[in-house]
Write a protein that binds this DNA or RNA. Sequence first.
DNA 1: TAGATTGTTAATCGATTAACAATC
DNA 2: TAGATTGTTAATCGATTAACAATC
Lengths: 214, 214
Amino acid sequence: MPHTDTRHASGPTLRRLPHYHRLLRQLRAEGRVHVSSRLIARRLGAVAPQVRKDLAVTSVVGRPKVGYDVAELIEAISAYLGWRNAVKALLAGVGSLGTALLGYEGFRDAGLDIVAAFDVSREKIGTHVHGVAVYPLSDLPALADRMGVRVGVLTVPAEAAQPVANLMVAGGIRGIWNFAPARLDVPADIVVEDVSLSSSLAVLSGRLNHPDSA
Amino acid sequence: MPHTDTRHASGPTLRRLPHYHRLLRQLRAEGRVHVSSRLIARRLGAVAPQVRKDLAVTSVVGRPKVGYDVAELIEAISAYLGWRNAVKALLAGVGSLGTALLGYEGFRDAGLDIVAAFDVSREKIGTHVHGVAVYPLSDLPALADRMGVRVGVLTVPAEAAQPVANLMVAGGIRGIWNFAPARLDVPADIVVEDVSLSSSLAVLSGRLNHPDSA
DNA sequence: TAGATTGTTAATCGATTAACAATC
DNA sequence: TAGATTGTTAATCGATTAACAATC
């Protein structure tokens, strides 16, 4: 009996899935119907068994001597990552980064539909930023709950991160995409994904200053 | 003989150093002079040996029963990450994300001094964005070389990423902070650090959709 | 001194890579 | 069929965590 249950995807695997998706779309645009793990690996700077193990989480099976069906893989990755039916999200903190994220059209294709924004600033409240209405932070829990928002994008200053995260949790949000440079203390069933620009920059600086790095 | 040569800092360690730095500044502001690895670990959601191993790369030694000197650690982390004398950087791609990054004052404190921006758009060339002059992309190699720029911040669309990275390399740049969703092909001695928002979002989505994740 | 804390070695854990039988 | 490619198990690698002697 072939096992149909998908293996659990590790963090590194999840991180790579969008790269596979991007390459596969490119290959499909070039008219390619099948693709081998070896080709994918070469184009992405990886090795073939890595690619096969990653793709296995989608339950797609390849054919020996032929490879994988490109269109099937694209669809399966989209489905696995929940890109088919976008989840509703809100954004808190309409500063320069928040504004830039509100202006990024691509999130809807990546399963994220930002339906409301929140800020403390009198000047911003009541305006629309890239088509998204800005509400007062104090309305966040009630509005999030009413609209059925599941994800919060956190782009507030460090000091405000924890209190605003609390508002998100109070509003019934399930996951927080945290761009603030602060560690969040949230209930165990809330998913937090940190985007730490300072960490990323530190890796770049460290490698530049200490070049013997592996 | 005590060994004075610093151990090599791994990627994960480099990523955590800014978090230690932030917490230590906070502790210093509260008037704390010494700190134990145990306290740092608790505040950052880590374990004490992890902290001690990370901090060891700075060559700072702690005192049994007392802990580490807070000010000394702050200084040593800054020095290790090259935050003392900021490196010159340029930014290519003055879109919404590029504009947001140009507006972020904190980079200078993190050792990055963005001295010029580049774009293809006629409207943008010749203007200043958050005080930084925008030049035509074609001038990038010559200007980078002349100004002694060492880091390039890449915030162009995916299709432009590789050609613009090539311009950066031609201009003598040593490291690229890549925000574009594309894999860059560069000489082996060039450091590339990717910030992949789609990967980060994929982790969040994957954990939300497949909750049994570890 | 007694006890807390460091620095480091050893054990564990998880992810990557290599190897290879199954298969079309 | 012969040979390329998959799916999966075993080996390797690197990072995290546990353990503990040294030390102030």
